[in-house]
Amino acid sequence: MSEEHAHIVQYKTFAIVWIGLLILTGLTVAVAQYNLGAMNIWVALGIATLKSGLVIAFFMHMKYESRLFQLSLFAALAILAIFIGLNFFDVLYR
């Protein structure tokens, strides 16, 4: 089967991604020192999303997988977002 010989990711790619992740970790700690009000949480979440995107795309090979995998991942995350999001119709208006 063709997919058995799926893309082999180079060591170098992984190393670069790892360095990127460490930098982002440092960044998120640094940003947290400033009081941005409600923005703090969104910045932190934004950086975390970026980091997790890197892990998923490279470490977990999602970049090299078929559209089916990517769509499924999207569906799962969308459902999670819906589960969390719809709750706020209750929480914010109570």
Binding site: I79, F89, D90
Partner: peptide, 22 residues
Amino acid sequence: GSLVWAHHMYTSGMSDMAVLVF
């Protein structure tokens, strides 16, 4: 079906906005 769970909770004390949406 994943978007409608709170229709079990109209009387639970949740917000009226949630009742409207669900």
